[in-house]
Computed example of a mutant assay.
Amino acid sequence: MARPKRFHKMIRIGPVEVGTYRDDRGREKHTAACTAPRCGFSTDYADRSAAELAARTHHCAP
């Protein structure tokens, strides 16, 4: 059974939250996820700057 992801270094950029976690192999990963209803945007990145850039440029579908 997979462990739940434990996020730290959370920031919010508009409706998108960016958080950092460690994967199963101990590598640091970064996630950007939109919290708007019915959006569904969520991606993982290898570095924090890419996740923050995705958060800044994300636009929810109307």
Rank of each mutant, 00 (worst) to 15 (best):
I11L: 13
R6M: 12
E52G: 07
K9S: 15
A61C: 09
V16N: 02
R48S: 04
Y21C: 03
P4W: 07
C60H: 15
R12A: 13
T43F: 11
H8R: 15
E28S: 09
G26M: 03
E17P: 01
A32E: 02
R25C: 07
P37K: 10
K5F: 12
K29H: 04
T35D: 00
T43C: 11
P4D: 12
R27Y: 03
A54N: 02
R12K: 15
P4V: 13
A54C: 06
F7K: 03
T35H: 04
C39V: 02
T31G: 08
D24M: 05
R38G: 01
A33F: 06
V18A: 07
M10H: 09
S49D: 15
R3C: 09
Y45W: 12
E28D: 07
R3V: 12
R25P: 01
T43A: 15
E17A: 11
R12Q: 15
R12C: 11
H8Q: 12
F7S: 07
A36F: 03
C34A: 02
A32N: 05
Y21A: 02
K29T: 03
A33G: 12
A46D: 07
T31W: 01
D23E: 07
R27M: 11
I11A: 08
R56S: 14
H30T: 01
C34E: 08
R27T: 08
R6A: 11
C39N: 01
K5T: 08
R12I: 10
A54Q: 08
T31H: 09
P4C: 12
A50I: 00
A32D: 02
A54D: 05
H8K: 11
D47R: 08
A51I: 00
D24V: 11
L53W: 11
R48L: 04
M1H: 11
E52F: 01
P37V: 09
H8I: 10
H58T: 09
I11M: 10
M10T: 14
I11K: 12
G19E: 02
S42E: 15
T35W: 05
D47F: 07
